[in-house]
Design a protein around this nucleic acid. Structure first.
Lengths: 110, 110
DNA sequence: CAATCCCCCATCGATTGACGATGGGAGCGG
DNA sequence: CCGCTCCCATCGTCAATCGATGGGGGATTG
């Protein structure tokens, strides 16, 4: 048993992460909390979704990571947006809006 | 090699189909054309996405199907929304808007 | 009237991506 | 020193889209 209730629209997780990192480097746990907070508890990014996603982003060179120490004096890996990541963010965001608009067009009147 | 370019937000296909059927029964090919047309060619529902989705909807009792003859005098299977399907449509639509709003909240300011 | 195009059905295999469960480790407060 | 919260990460499972593929039957056209 797995993956029963997608709390997310699949495919949008990368976008959300990239967007969260645009202001400042953050660690994984912080990203998840941030998304959850900003979405008013609607989007709950589980850690088992988050870390694979971060691996993806690293592999694609959209973020880089370095170890550091969190505010609470804990060992944490800080993720930073790269230049390519910023580009990717813009592209994914446009694409997202494009698709959503198209869907809403269909929903409004069939 | 497969599934490279999701033209769709995964998870929204059922919603689109249900919405398309709300006005009148349609056959598969017609549904695909309709969605593509209403979305101004943005959403292209391939047949290999469509028919599995229709099977899903049938299994869940959200649509029923019967063989008939198309406008062009061709053999075609017409899908009709059931009462449960109408409920499901409302539910999925609300859920979709809820998630999209949440995502847009995150996108607007992080 | 035969070739051909378009309509219309359907399945298989590969791939992607999210999630539940799980397993650490390390600082901090009571 | 006990437990709570923070923080990392992986494994296995499952759902869902998509490319490729196959086939049949009207209708149109040359």
């Amino acid at each position: 048993m797995a993956s029963r209730q997608p709390e997310l629209l699949p495919g949008t997780l990368d976008l959300l992460i990239l967007r969260t990192l645009v202001r400042e480097p953050m660690h994984g746990y912080g990203i998840a909390s941030r998304v959850r907070e900003l979405s008013k508890d609607v989007l709950r990014v589980g850690e088992s979704s988050l870390y694979p996603a971060l691996q993806r982003l690293l592999l694609n060179g959209w973020v880089k990571a370095e170890w550091g120490t969190s505010e609470n004096n804990r060992r944490a890996r800080y993720y930073t947006l790269t230049a390519a990541g910023k580009q990717q963010l813009v592209a994914e965001r446009q694409e997202f809006e494009r698709i959503v608009l198209a869907i809403q067009n269909v929903l409004q009147f069939a």
